[in-house]
Each structure stands twice: as C-alpha cells, then as structure tokens.
C-alpha cells in the first residue's frame, strides 16, 4: 500500500502546510519509504497478541486537583510571532 501524491497533498492541507511541487514529490517518496518500513510488521503473525493501547505497562497516573503556579502572561506570550498586550494574534478566523 504505497502512499500517493494525492494522499500527501491532502495531509499537508489538513496540517495547513503549503508545499511546492518539488516538496510534494520528495515528501511522497520519503513518507512512502517510512510506511513501507513500518509495513515489515505485517510479516509477523499477531493472531494471538492482544491489542496494545500503550507501550508502557502502567495505568492510572492521576494527579490531585490542586492549583499550581501558572506562567505570567508575558512569559506565555513571549514566543508569539504576533501578539498584543493581552492576546496571541493570528490571521482572521471566522
């Protein structure tokens, strides 16, 4: 099951990535290689293996509902490409 150029185009749109034609071509090739690599797993018989939800064999990591310190607003906004006094600013979302 190879990845097509259309698949990559669709995924890049979902991730809001604007790829050039060249990038789309090379990305299709690279991503296909990765998927083919993972497909090696198909060779293993997993009939008797239960589905795995997590690679770690632990459950129930829970924290108490107690407030801890937040970042200051200044710290929260400091890496934003665009901002004002209070908020992150982004191109219009309607």
């Amino acid at each position: 099951m190879a990845l097509t150029r259309d698949d990559v185009e669709k995924v890049s749109l979902l991730a809001r990535l604007q790829l050039t034609d060249d990038e789309l071509n090379s990305m299709t090739e690279h991503l296909s290689q990765i998927i083919q690599y993972v497909h090696q797993l198909d060779e293993i018989n997993t009939d008797d293996v239960a589905p795995l939800a997590h690679t770690l064999d632990i459950t129930n990591v829970l924290a108490d509902d107690v407030v801890a310190d937040c970042l200051s607003r200044e710290a929260a906004l400091q890496n934003a490409p665009q901002r004002d006094e209070e908020c992150f600013r982004v191109p219009a979302v309607l």
């Binding site: 924290a63 407030v67 801890a68 310190d69 937040c70 200051s72 929260a76 209070e86 908020c87 992150f88």
Partner: peptide, 15 residues
C-alpha cells in the same frame, strides 16, 4: 494544574 476560573484576564491561566 492551571486554574479553570471563568472570566479572568486573557492568557493569565496557562502553562
């Protein structure tokens, strides 16, 4: 563990 208080000034309850 940021608080969930409603109506606080913008971006003062983040981590």
């Amino acid at each position: 563990r940021c608080p969930t208080t409603f109506g606080q000034p913008p971006n003062t309850q983040t981590c």
